[in-house]
Amino acid sequence: MFLSIMRLGGVVEMARRLRNRPETIRATPPAPGPAAAAARRLRGSLQLRHVDAGSCNGCELEIGGTFSPVYDAERFGLRLEASPRHADGLLVTGPVTRNMAGPLRRTLEAVPRPAVVVTVGDCAAGCGVFRGGYGVEGAVGDVVDVDLHIPGCPPDPAAITAALRGLAGR
């Protein structure tokens, strides 16, 4: 009985969502990226493997928000993949800790060429508050070559979506 009530509530909820417009907000236009060549190659389809190289998880929250119903970056052909083999590049957050420097290099090696590296958040560019920490190897740029940086502490989902759209050319 309880189950059937739950199901009915689900049906009503679905009907409401279909009637209303999606909860997605209007996206900010794509930011012009430095990688015009990548945009021509990707042509509106960009899959990334996310690597947390030592982040405080603030950026992870915003990346989660980027793919939530409100920002819905998937509508622009952007997705996070489970396997670096399926990805066009990496989405790296945080300063690179000593333990994550090796895994980060190896993950990038596993991505088919050509691979893009996108960094999210101020820590990835200059280590932020973690600069000089005993466990920190350095910024992401000290370990692998970075193609695109999304600044902010943390950057908001609209900025992440706009930057990735610029990279995907859409």
Binding site: M14, R17, L18, P22, E23, T24, P69, D72, E74, R75, F76, G77
Partner: peptide
């Protein structure tokens, strides 16, 4: 599925 989840979804 995207529309039923309240998202816009890819084309």
């Amino acid at each position: 599925k995207a529309r039923l989840e309240g998202r816009t979804g890819p084309p």
